[in-house]
């Protein structure tokens, strides 16, 4: 983490730094201690880091999971059956009320348009993009990305 922070000096790199730190971590969230370290590094206060973390949806600060599935449920995907896919996915992974499933290794997040409308319905699993989905295809992808 120190190493990542040392790449950045200016405070404007806060978002970049958080991206990099989260990318390196198995658990996609920051501890209070890490938030404090980031704040100190950029000479800002912890609330400001928290303010940024809680503003951007990609910085999940509440749950620790291995993989994040971002499933698009905005109009283009919606009319192509995204809603059913979401229900299926949550059932399939056995998600709890925090949308964590697959024995705690997947967070299912319904997200806004991913710009994959030409292959709707679509999902992103961590950094990877999958389109033209149906239940079977989605199931297969999940298994391959466990």
């Amino acid at each position: 983490m120190e190493e990542i922070l040392n790449r950045y000096r200016d405070r404007s790199y806060l978002i970049e730094a958080i991206h990099d730190i989260l990318d390196e971590k198995d658990e996609k969230s920051l501890t209070d201690d890490e938030i404090k370290k980031i704040a100190r590094h950029f000479k800002i206060n912890t609330a400001e880091v928290l303010g940024v973390l809680t503003f951007y949806t990609m910085f999940s600060v509440k749950w620790k999971v291995k993989h994040t599935i971002r499933i698009c449920n905005s109009p283009a995907c919606y009319i192509k059956g995204a809603k059913e896919l979401v229900t299926f996915l949550k059932n399939y992974l056995g998600c709890d009320k925090n949308n964590i499933g697959g024995n705690g290794s997947f967070l299912v997040e319904e997200v806004e348009c991913l710009g994959l409308c030409d292959v709707a319905p679509a999902v992103m699993i961590d950094d990877k993009v999958f389109g033209n989905l149906n239940k079977e295809k989605l199931k297969k992808i999940i298994e391959e990305n466990k």
Partner: peptide
Amino acid sequence: SFINRGGEVRVAAGF
């Protein structure tokens, strides 16, 4: 700082 966004916005200090 403010935390969260939209209707969930609130003022916060620290963590």
